[in-house]
Nucleic acid binder design. Sequence first.
DNA 1: GTAATTTCTAAAGCTGACTTTAGGTCAAGA
DNA 2: TCTTGACCTAAAGTCAGCTTTAGAAATTAC
Lengths: 158, 158
Amino acid sequence: MAEPQARQASQRGLSIGALAERTGLAVSAIRYYETQGLVSAWRNAGGQRRFARADIRRLSFVMIAQQFGVSLSEIRDLLDELPGGRTPTPQDWAHISTRFRARLDQRIETLERLRDNLDGCIGCGCLSLPKCSLYNPEDRAHGQGSGPRYLMGDTPGL
Amino acid sequence: MAEPQARQASQRGLSIGALAERTGLAVSAIRYYETQGLVSAWRNAGGQRRFARADIRRLSFVMIAQQFGVSLSEIRDLLDELPGGRTPTPQDWAHISTRFRARLDQRIETLERLRDNLDGCIGCGCLSLPKCSLYNPEDRAHGQGSGPRYLMGDTPGL
DNA sequence: GTAATTTCTAAAGCTGACTTTAGGTCAAGA
DNA sequence: TCTTGACCTAAAGTCAGCTTTAGAAATTAC
């Protein structure tokens, strides 16, 4: 595999390998994303997947959002706002990016608030983390059940 | 289970159930944390676990760090700085919290930088995410192999 | 035309962080 | 004392996000 020299890109669509090269994703990851509804492809005569050029950008968006800790299902929800049937315009991407930025601002704000509370705990000398404003397990102990624990980034509503 | 009224806490140590109540963690989670070396217990005559009161604070720290997306093994590394053999003092906790704050600052900084780059992409109108400074997959495509993908928070060195 | 790649599908495997299950044992209160 | 609830261990299950494997068909390169 020495320099595959521009595999049939334009009209016929991109093969999964070409898309993988362009995005830096693994082929297996792209197939997985297809099962998760993040991207879609048509098939050529031989049954192989062919992708639109616009999917490079689409998958790049997926990768960026992942860096921010957004789960694939949330990313799918974001992408669902893109128009179906036609290639997304710059305006379409601007719209989705703006919504995305809003979530991002929220997350940063949350982290800063937590950090400041942690500072308070160190500063005031109480260090009674379980009792202070940062974290009060007594409040949470009742009626919590044993549901799933959310890591930062999977927290619903964040 | 109507108000167990202060289960033998002081000298004899806390049962796993009592610790679970105080922290809001599930009993199974505490047992799991023990296998991961995040907390330890001695056994009573009947073979049941008994925990020190200080473990409430210890586990609270674990929960806080998790909210920041720190993995359990990283948390264990942090906790390993606490003195063995004696109950941690407020100073001990202050030390560890300060180290922790530094990581937190880094993460917030990283997120802000990414956000600002995203702003640039929206602002300049190019929206060519794959090409802009935010994310350049062409650079990443070569020699990447198919190693593990890091989610925000698991990134080594962050 | 033939050999070397790529791609295909389905299923199984992997990591992290736990929970659930199964089959007992221990302890506390009426 | 006896019963109910708490606790024990080991192993298997769960979810997200993928990768790996296996065996076969399509495509590309020479």
